[in-house]
Write a protein that binds this DNA or RNA. Structure first.
Length: 194
DNA sequence: TTGTGTTTTATTGCCTCC
DNA sequence: GGAGGCAATAAAACACAA
């Protein structure tokens, strides 16, 4: 610290005049790193020491650099904020579309289920009607029961496969809860209602 | 007027280049 | 090795609210 005190002991710091600053600023705009001869020229012109001119340009470059960093930061932040807004809007839109897809999928599956049930029941009716023997009717009914049990097993197997694939790749957009076979509340007609 | 924060001038030490 | 640039810092000068 002693050397610093010594440096300032005999020289009071004095701010440059407006004209000096103006001239320095003008030169800086044209040349941020002036040659030695230009520094000497400026020094004699402004009544300053060449060392003072050199220091002024050094400090000016430092100020200019930090100002530029602030501006760059401001631009980057603005860009980031805009992107964040866009991202949030797209995320919400994506969520809405996913919900729509799930509803439509549920509706389609329900209609297919109804169609299959109707076709199955329709194919059973002629044989049941033609069979007027009590025992054979029971045989037909037993066969029907066997068929429905097999179909139920197949459904369970299918559900397991879907659930497995859903868990393996949850990004496919069909969560376990949203899959139709676990939620038939939207399906008004069942095969046993037929 | 005074305390406090900001700006400006100046120094120091380190690094790179010739 | 000397010259010059840069980062970090000191300290004077200045601005301003209370």
């Amino acid at each position: 610290m002693e050397h610093i005190k010594k440096s300032f002991k005999n020289s009071r710091k004095k701010r440059f005049s407006d004209d000096q600053i103006k001239s320095l600023e003008t030169t800086f705009k044209a040349e941020a790193r002036p040659e030695l001869h230009l520094k000497h020229h400026l020094a004699s012109k402004l009544g300053l020491q060449p060392r003072q001119i050199a220091i002024w340009f050094q400090n000016k470059r430092a100020r200019s650099k930090s100002k530029q960093i602030e501006q760059d930061y401001s631009v980057l932040k603005s860009n980031y904020d805009n992107l964040a807004l866009q991202f949030e809007a797209l995320r919400k839109e994506n969520q809405t579309l996913l919900i729509q897809v799930q509803k439509l999928r549920k509706k389609v599956d329900c209609e297919e289920n109804n169609k299959n049930t109707i076709e199955l029941a329709a194919s059973e009716i002629p044989r049941l009607l033609l069979d007027i023997n009590g025992n054979e009717l029971c045989g037909e009914l037993n066969g029907r029961v066997d068929y429905l049990e097999e179909e139920a097993d197949a459904d369970v197997l299918y559900m397991a496969q879907i659930a497995e694939s859903s868990l393996a790749s949850p990004e496919n957009g069909c969560s376990l809860e949203s899959c139709y076979f676990l939620d038939n509340s939207g399906c008004s007609a069942q095969w046993w209602d037929f």
